[in-house]
Every structure is written in structure tokens, then in C-alpha cells.
Nucleic acid binder design. Structure first.
Lengths: 156, 156
DNA sequence: AGTAGTTAGTTGATACTTCAAGTGAGACCG
DNA sequence: CGGTCTCACTTGAAGTATCAACTAACTACT
């Protein structure tokens, strides 16, 4: 951290304020729809979606945490709740019993299938339909460049 | 919500996944730095910053909530905590005593001034420096278009 | 004035996230 | 082998967010 602070230029500030507003508002809007229509948070949805797309409908906790962009601790709590609701199961891996493998159950899969159309429609309404194809492309490039700085390892 | 779901095209999906990852990761990274170096969350920082830039260093709760992109309830809890720490004060407005006016104290201002350089440096490191001037401009346009859909009133 | 309706903000219960500490399994090393 | 180290997760406590219910103040109508 250098001695002299480089304050933001007005242009930079405007872009940053927009991004900040987006970070505050979009998750709330997404959570609201999912919660209301399916009783899932966006994070829970992402967890179920991650499991559903994986071989054996299973993933080890660390990988799932990476996929869902959350900490292992957060994931552990969330999976415990999802397990109580009957949407996932956990068991230790045969190979290495430090590893926990989570699996989505049939009930969890049904829940996901029921939630998906509404969620996709919301993403479409708020994000995809708001942008041109070029802008979508720009958004991906911009996002990846920022993520590269935030989280230098793991290039997804 | 229509009968036939329009699933996302691969291109659309990739852009969305990037944006989703950004929404999960960036707030955490920002909060982490602020919390560690100044004991403030990004939301608290935004609240103090909003007050500090306003005439009389004061703002009514609703306006402050709008500025900070949070609900009135959330703001009320946060301001209560900031008040306990001596960083803001609240009093009812003379004109309309339903209205609560929050004011940043000298201690709060000092806290903000102490936190600002590190926070700005972090924003610069993660966002501004990651992007070209054109990309910053694109980001603002893209963000505004999404926000317009999420929150149709209030064009900031 | 009296009453119904609206607005601004607060509160309390519940749920969620985070952080630090803990557990138990495998790896390494003499 | 026995001890230490690291890894993969889990847990409990404390802090924070969210939702619904509530209070108090103003407004509008009769």
C-alpha cells in the first residue's frame, strides 16, 4: 500500500459506483425470486445445480465450494441444511476418508427442476435481455479480468 | 412466466456464470480488506461515505438507504450499531417527525478518513487496474442497463 | 374534530454467514 | 513404527441480514 493515495477519477468513480450498486442489488433480486417461488437461496440453487451436472450427481465438498464460489465453512452449513431437507446426502469417500462426497437426491433434483425455469427466466429478464450480444461478450471479458485480480489462481 | 422455458445459450451461460462469480467474490474480497484494516463492512463504509458527502454531513434514513442500495430495515440495524460505536447520530427531523436524520460524527469522519485510502487502493487493484478505459466505460453502460431492469425506478 | 389510509422508520424473531477453533485421516520423515 | 504436519472438513459462537409485525406521525376525507 503506497504512501500517496491515488483517488478515483470521476469517470472511474462512476463506473465503480455502478458496479457497486450492481453487486448490492442483483443478488437480492435473484434471491428474492428464488426464495419466493422455490424456497431456495441463490447459493443453495447453485449448489444443487452443481451437483446435478456432475458425474454420479456427486461432488466432493471442496470442489463444490469452488464451483459455488463460497467458503468451505459456508458450504458445510448450507449442505447440512439441505441434507435436513432431504435434498442432498453426504458420505465419506472410500479412497480418502477425510473427503466428504455430497450427492443430490431425487427430491433435491425435483426441487431443482421445479426451480430452474423461474430462475432462468429471471436471469434472462434482468441480465441477458438487458444487453446486446456484444455487451454480453464484453461483460464476460471484463468479469474474467476482475476475477483474475481478485482470485489469481483458479481460472474458470 | 411463459409456458416454454428459454434455456440459456452456451455463450449466454458463460457470461452469466462470470457475472455470478463476480457477484459472489468481489463483495467478499472488499469486505475482507475493509474489515481487516478498519473494522468496517463495505455497507458500513458506504453509509459513512454517503453521510460525509452530504450537506450538513446528514441524510434522512430513506435517502441514505437508497444511496447505499439497501433496505430501510437493514440500514436501521446498521445505523444503530454505528451509533453505538459513536460514528453516527440520529435525531427526528423538525419538519416532519416521522423522518429520522442521520449525521456522521467527528469520530465517524475520522474512521472514514482512515479507511478510505486502503479501500480506494483495493478498488483500484481489483477493478480499475484490471480494465482499460474503454472497458470501464462499457462496464458502466452494461451495469446501468441491468440495474434499469432490476430496479426500474431510481436512475442514478 | 374523527377516522381511515399512507408514510417513515424501528424492532424482534429467525435464518444465515463468518471466524476461529477443533477433529480425524492421511502423508512424511527419522 | 511413532511423532509431527498438513489436509479436508465440521462445529459453535458471534455477528449480520431478512421478514413480518409494529409504532408513531402526517394526510385526506367527511
Amino acid at each position: 500500500m503506497s504512501d500517496e493515495v491515488e483517488w478515483l477519477e470521476p469517470e472511474e468513480l462512476r463506473s465503480w459506483m455502478t458496479l457497486a450498486a450492481l453487486m448490492f442489488k442483483l443478488p437480492g433480486a435473484l434471491d428474492y425470486q428464488l426464495q419466493r417461488d422455490s424456497g431456495l437461496t441463490h447459493f443453495e440453487y447453485t449448489v444443487l445445480a452443481g451437483l446435478s451436472e456432475s458425474p454420479e450427481r456427486s461432488l466432493r465438498m471442496s470442489n463444490l465450494a469452488g464451483f459455488a464460489n463460497g467458503s468451505l465453512s459456508r458450504l458445510s452449513h448450507v449442505v447440512k441444511r439441505l441434507e435436513r431437507r432431504g435434498f442432498v446426502e453426504r458420505r465419506p469417500s472410500e479412497d480418502d476418508r477425510r473427503i466428504t462426497v455430497a450427492t443430490i437426491t431425487d427430491a433435491g433434483f425435483e426441487q431443482l427442476v421445479a426451480a430452474a425455469p423461474g430462475h432462468v427466466a429471471t436471469v434472462r429478464k434482468y441480465v441477458i435481455d438487458a444487453l446486446s450480444p456484444e455487451q454480453l461478450q464484453q461483460l464476460k471479458v471484463i468479469g474474467d479480468q476482475i476475477l483474475e485480480k481478485v482470485d489469481p489462481d483458479k481460472d474458470c
